[in-house]
Design a protein around this nucleic acid. Sequence first.
DNA 1: AGAGTCTTCCAAAGCGCTTTGGCTTTTCCG
DNA 2: CGGAAAAGCCAAAGCGCTTTGGAAGACTCT
Lengths: 340, 340
Amino acid sequence: MNLKQLAHMLALSQTTVSRALNGYPEVNEETRRRVMDAAKRHGYRPNPSARRLATGKSGMIGYVLPTGAAVDIDPHFVEFLSGLGDYARSHELDLVLSPADADDQETTYRRIVANRQVDAVYISSPRPQDSRVALVSTLGIPFLVHGRSEGFDFDYPYLDIDNEGAFHEAARLLIQLGHRRLALINGDDRETFAIHRERGVRRALAASGLSLGERHVCSVVMTEENGYRATRRLLEEGDAPTAIACSSLIMALGVVRAVRDLGLTIPGDVSLIAHDDVFPWLKPENFSVPLSTTRSSIRLAGARVAERLAARISGLEEGARGEVWPVDLVVRGSVAGAPA
Amino acid sequence: MNLKQLAHMLALSQTTVSRALNGYPEVNEETRRRVMDAAKRHGYRPNPSARRLATGKSGMIGYVLPTGAAVDIDPHFVEFLSGLGDYARSHELDLVLSPADADDQETTYRRIVANRQVDAVYISSPRPQDSRVALVSTLGIPFLVHGRSEGFDFDYPYLDIDNEGAFHEAARLLIQLGHRRLALINGDDRETFAIHRERGVRRALAASGLSLGERHVCSVVMTEENGYRATRRLLEEGDAPTAIACSSLIMALGVVRAVRDLGLTIPGDVSLIAHDDVFPWLKPENFSVPLSTTRSSIRLAGARVAERLAARISGLEEGARGEVWPVDLVVRGSVAGAPA
DNA sequence: AGAGTCTTCCAAAGCGCTTTGGCTTTTCCG
DNA sequence: CGGAAAAGCCAAAGCGCTTTGGAAGACTCT
């Protein structure tokens, strides 16, 4: 059932039917009702390919997925996706993932924009002066950054959590508990979120006349194994920290294992606070010692990103609005006063 | 730059240019070269929307993503996606995720097929007599099932791993080591993979005149917490198992924690084998006691699914070929002889 | 009543590609 | 050398929708 047929059986022109369906004003309300009614009754659905060819709009949002033999998609992605889906589902928005060589995403961005494959894109895990942000904003497609970039002479729309504030709070708590030597096991510090977290920790330390030791901060891919290794290194050297802030729950697993392997305890010998993106399959309260966390649901962020993207597509949201969500500090058993 | 312009500047008709580009035979090789050359030089790329309207082909593969407030996307999905991306990237295949209410995916399948949004779809986590498989095969769109369904009077193409064989081997090993009371902590047993795993364990037990105790098998969503709870329950009741087979590494985290909480040890008091889909961020060899596993890379499966889907789209693969991958049994420290 | 203004609808022109059917040229072969 | 077959190319008709530029009729206003 296509427009032509529908128009014919209503004895109307395609124009009128199209306009009636798309809510244009120049059609009689009574006629519109008739059209809407018939459309529903016959299950008419406009062919998206045709509509797309005519309008250039696709009703899909895009994401360029960095891939490569040595590239692993972040497990956080799936939770983000859940959120995105939550919103998209109820708005018949589809998401198209365009896999790209992690080292050459530009080609893919240009392709999906030139092809008008999607109405908007989002960018995640941005770095300072991220070339994708610059690219996409010159390409002139609606977009939203999940996270923040830095160092541009222009503004851009983003949704981020207050990473700096979160880790500032976490560090401040540890300092209040008497800890003087903190360590930070961070994610990839070429990414802004990691930079912000480090900044938060440093600021808290500085406020008490302390600082983050050269060897007390490390930046690694967030795996359990890396959490373990980093912790071993930290605790086996002299000047070992008495408290650790850790950028992910997955690494925290490794931290816990390392502490145990060394015959130490949490929080007796070392206090631990990790960032929790809220996974359904791994909860901080279920760690052998319940984990204190800075918590922010990445799933909710996904839903919000979809919502704002939809708003930008339809012109409801404009400009370069940045949105920063506060992060909860949840104190559980893994922190205690510094050992004597 | 569109076909028309390109044709005009080559002083050829659109027909010829189109045919030259698409490899049709009725065009002079010399002409073809000229066309290809000019196309490349001017960076001509056919507009996919237009091509799609004309041919009905979209160059994308689809996946209906079950979502809902109470629905969490499986973290395995992200690894599968990495694999899919590995293949898709080099073939300019995009993946479109269509979020759907988990309880009504049919509508969405019908929509994406009717709209010709994608050239093929894949289905994952199938159940016996999965309605999606039946639906999709009547809708007549190329598809592939990742996993297996059962109980149909027709065949369908799939890619699965030998879940039954894997768990049969695992159980057999445990039995050989003298274990008599095995337990299985399984995933959702409405899904075929879980059924097959249980079948494998039962078959191994039966071969030695043993059986799986009524209360020694449980089916839960695969989270750390559920692994923990299941293990507590198993070990605290009378008739506790001396060996556990577990369907995921994530649940295995919970198993390990529970065993430790009870003051027991692995493998002294209880042996453990888990299934490992091969995550980069959580490795069985890094468990406090290195974990024995049945191993199969879900990432490789993702790549293979994409490859076969592409083959089916282009007509290179036909029929209902089923492909079952063997699973490695990797023995590490978490298994030992049964306690006296 | 005539001019101007809405309101409501329509015919037709795209959007950019593929593909059908046909028209010239070449090539082949007896 | 003549006729058939093959090769090489083209014009034009879709694919199904949106949108431009009117046109006809109904209303308003002076």
